[in-house]
Design a protein around this nucleic acid. Sequence first.
DNA 1: CGTCAGCTTGACTCATCTCAACTAGGGTGG
DNA 2: CCACCCTAGTTGAGATGAGTCAAGCTGACG
Lengths: 247, 247
Amino acid sequence: MAPQEATKPPEWAAPCPHERTDTTCAGCKVRGVSICAALDASELGALEAIAEDVHYDARETILLQDDAADAVYNVTQGTVRLYKLLPDGRRQIVGFLLPGDFMGLALSDRYPFSADAVEPVAACRFARGAFSSLVDEKPHLLRRLHEAATHELSLAQDHMVLLGRRTADEKVAAFLLGMRERWRRLGGSLVIILLPMTRQDIADYLGLTLETVSRTISKFARSRMLLVVPDGVRFLDPARIEALAGH
Amino acid sequence: MAPQEATKPPEWAAPCPHERTDTTCAGCKVRGVSICAALDASELGALEAIAEDVHYDARETILLQDDAADAVYNVTQGTVRLYKLLPDGRRQIVGFLLPGDFMGLALSDRYPFSADAVEPVAACRFARGAFSSLVDEKPHLLRRLHEAATHELSLAQDHMVLLGRRTADEKVAAFLLGMRERWRRLGGSLVIILLPMTRQDIADYLGLTLETVSRTISKFARSRMLLVVPDGVRFLDPARIEALAGH
DNA sequence: CGTCAGCTTGACTCATCTCAACTAGGGTGG
DNA sequence: CCACCCTAGTTGAGATGAGTCAAGCTGACG
């Protein structure tokens, strides 16, 4: 993150994602769920030295597929969508990043996908060269990175099953449960599922159209499994949603 | 593989995948395209010490999803399918392994997928504990493993695009081109594409039914893009197949 | 208070699936 | 050696889940 400003913003500014009262790694809210958890206190200093605090507005582009990958990121606030486009404009979202998630695991020359902010986003930005050197010095950081990569790979394979072999109802149910689980790990509710992304985003993630997503959620609401609320849904009968998702 | 018998098999047995005349890493045909390429001559000795030569018949199960992951493998001959099953029997193949491919990148406690031999398979089997220790000792082996994992992840994301956003024609065309590229790297032909897997396997890889795969290939043959030959297809007009796949 | 993006809903279409019949090759045992 | 079977593949006819096209609703924002 960017070095702490000399003058702190007032307390009331805290909810604004473009301000933070504490920009040190040690005080980072998402450290426990991030790559950074692999480092001890002294190593955090080395990490902090190469970190830059960056912010994006809703719908702002963070990076583009095939661009030179000169940085990796750790999301600290907000939601990011990662996607690939086909030449004719069809889009597949390959993942959503929530606070604590790392972007750029591959440490490759070019970004393999594009990324933009679904809602206002804050992130730690690490120059690739410096980060790569740090990884070379700390084998257990590499180990952690590798664990994160293989975990991602496993999620990707689960998502292949969903895309290739599940019906629209199953896809939507599994998506909602997946979001519940991810928010839960960040201290969220088991009942209110926040959905900062649009129906089109969900559709492009699930391999459906936005109309099918909308109809499916409406159908779930009609059969009293959930309630559509502002910015998300509220589960009324989680068991039936779990049954639909095949969990 | 099982330790080499004291009496070597005669030369004429060489084509049989259950016999090898040279079972050292140094003489391994797939070393150049494998994880093992990360190791120098002396390190190969350490690897060889924990390797076991194993063989599987066509359709034999190699490992099962959720079983304790007590070994990792490097395929040296034949083709392996990796898949996940839904409780009702629907199957998604998450990948095919060809000679040189590594299975068990995750180094996790349980296998995240099942694997079986599409055709007779030979592989190097490494006990997980021993392999993991070796990785701990050799950071550049871990680096190589991480590169392999992120490469896999990138392929998985490409496959998500295919599963979520491509038509049957595009899926089949992209699959055939992908197999051509993989065989090419192993010294295969640019014109004859070997397809050791069944139509059902291809369908479960592409998120289609076997009938749709068969019809699509027949359609390509009818429009003179390719010829169906025993064990595969022969490209007649690769440019049109590439155009279909959007490449 | 008009505009616009996001969302919902309806009517109809169509790509792919389902069900079913048939063919071809390979292996086995009488 | 051939009759049988079994697996894999092909093809057709009809069904259907999800897509397309279109209209209208709603809430946020200038």
